[in-house]
Design a protein around this nucleic acid. Structure first.
Length: 472
RNA sequence: GGAGAGGUGGCAGAGCGGUUGAUUGCACCGGUCUUGAAAACCGGCAGGGGUUCACGCCCCUCGUGGGUUCGAAUCCCACCCUCUCCGCCA
């Protein structure tokens, strides 16, 4: 049974596959296919009718868009398209006339001779049009989403706006350890072993720490499904189409682990990719909205631009796990849905008794596809700072347009782009770090938050190696 | 991996190379009838794009790409996907 109605037509998406069917070349070549495909990113009409407004909006993100050049290109496109379609119409008319003449038993040879020149003209016009459209598509697929009106101005994280703080950082009357020290003390965290097996930025977890990691996953899935999210289990390997749909491609291939063999697939950088793409290429019935999904998955990131950052511990790994929340909603509901998805993520932090703050990202600090983003940052006592543990974004129709995700408007009967959102609920590795650090005790043990204890066989603390196992 | 079958509108399912972008059924929307509903009957109903103030007109799309032809859902080639049987396998 299908989870979602799949559009059998699949008329769109001629796109990426065709365009990048050219093997393991550069991921940057991945493009939507021209014309009749709706996976261009920003609304093509907005781009055509008011390119300067687009340029102004994108400038808030620090993105330069040459509106005049684009407008000039579009003028060429228009002329070429008109000419091409006129030629096609002419050819269709004549061919139809030949058919009728033949049916009437007339001699069609003279008619055929008349049409012969048309073919060449048409082919030439098509080629030209094709080139211009390809150029336009390349530009469009590289344009980030427009920031929502309410997004704070600014180009860097320094311009982010703190919305609220929840929970008081605990006072410690001993020297606060970081999670690496705590994890090693518990004999539960081993970076050296992972380095031997693989390399840098991996960790082997063991015993109580591994169990705590698993408990966090189970607790989060339980909490979110109880709140109405439908649990999913999805592929961790995806194709280029899916990554284009959510916006990782064509621009951010460097952040991905790519499997060139035996197939040109990618490891997912987040479950957002497979889950959001469930609605790719389909028309969802209006009553089915909102769709709310939760899934647990590993995430694989090359961290290409992060050399030297967060090298110690589990903050920044090539492989980590995450519980992800995804919603597909009616366009009118996406603003409220962002608040709701953020609240879902916050409920986990509250249950885990972790102090955190909520930050509205500035226009220039948001991800490529996001129209508005709230980050949740958890308090890390050793670093004496708040660190990102969840990112909740409203993508508006940006991803929906790229992947062809629509719902049927009951009033008009016509398909319309739906809105997509997602948020981490939460990143498991960082949640583990936060629990270890915030709930550490003077003796090196770690108190298990009450909410987690049922998923830990009822134990209330993790004890350092050498101490008696676990208190009841 | 081997052998076979197949991919057509929201779904199901037709379609001698020529007024077929596509018969029909279901679903859906509107109407008649009814106190109301159901049934019955009548009508409407694929997606995308261009152009137009608008009515409308035009182009593209029958898995994807290419080829043959004046003309392709229909013929040819390649690829992708699905199903059945066999092999392998958690």
């Amino acid at each position: 049974m299908a989870i979602l109605p799949r559009g059998a037509s699949a008329a769109r998406r001629v796109g990426v596959r065709a365009a990048c069917g050219l093997q393991a070349t550069d991921a940057a070549h991945i493009m939507p296919r021209k014309s009749q495909v709706l996976d261009v990113m920003l609304d093509p009409r907005l781009l055509r009718n008011d390119p300067h407004a687009v340029a102004t909006a994108l400038a808030r993100r620090g993105f330069e868009f040459d509106a005049d050049a684009y407008a000039a290109l579009d003028a060429r496109r228009k002329a070429l398209q008109t000419r091409t379609e006129e030629l096609q119409a002419e050819r269709n008319r004549r061919s139809k006339a030949i058919g009728q003449a033949k049916a009437a038993g007339e001699d069609i040879e003279p008619l055929k001779a008349e049409v012969s020149g048309l073919g060449d003209q048409l082919e030439a016009a098509k080629r030209e049009l094709d080139a211009v459209q390809t150029e336009q598509d390349e530009i469009r697929s590289g344009l980030p989403n427009l920031p929502h009106d309410g997004v704070p101005d600014g180009l860097s994280e320094d311009d982010n706006v703190e919305l609220r703080r929840v929970g008081e950082p605990a006072g410690f009357d001993f020297e606060v350890r970081d999670h690496v020290e705590i994890g090693e003390g518990l004999a539960g965290m081993d970076a050296a072993a992972a380095a031997k097996i693989t390399g840098a930025r991996f960790t082997v977890m063991k015993g109580g720490v591994a169990r705590l990691h698993r408990a966090l996953i189970a607790f989060m899935l339980e909490t979110h499904t109880a709140a109405g999210y439908t649990e999913l289990n999805v592929p961790y390997i995806v194709n280029a189409d899916s990554l284009f749909g959510t916006g990782q491609l064509p621009k951010f291939g460097d952040d991905l682990f790519r499997l060139a063999e035996p197939a040109d697939y990618y490891l997912i950088p987040t479950a957002e990719v497979p889950v959001t793409n469930l609605v790719a290429d389909s028309i969802v019935e209006a009553e089915a909205l909102p769709l709310r999904f939760v899934t647990h998955s590993p995430c694989f990131r090359a961290e290409a631009g992060a050399a030297g950052r967060d090298v110690r511990g589990m903050i920044r790994q090539h492989q980590f796990e995450k519980v992800e929340l995804v919603r597909m909603v009616h366009p009118d509901d996406s603003e409220a849905a962002l608040e709701a998805i953020t609240a879902s993520a916050e409920s986990i932090l509250q249950a885990l008794e972790l102090p955190y703050r909520v930050v509205a990202l500035a226009a220039g600090d948001m991800g490529f596809a996001a129209g508005r983003t709230y980050d949740l940052e958890v308090w890390l006592p050793n670093q004496r700072t708040y660190r990102e543990i969840s990112s909740c974004s409203n993508f508006g129709d940006f991803q929906a347009r790229r992947m062809g995700a629509r719902y049927r408007d009951p009033d008009t009967g016509k398909p319309r782009l739906l809105h997509t959102l997602n948020g981490s609920g939460l990143a498991i590795g960082r949640a583990l770090v936060a629990v270890l650090e915030n709930h550490q005790q003077a003796d090196g043990s770690v108190a298990i938050p009450a909410a987690l204890q049922p998923f830990m066989g009822g134990i209330t603390r993790l004890a350092p190696a050498g101490q008696a196992a676990a208190a009841q």
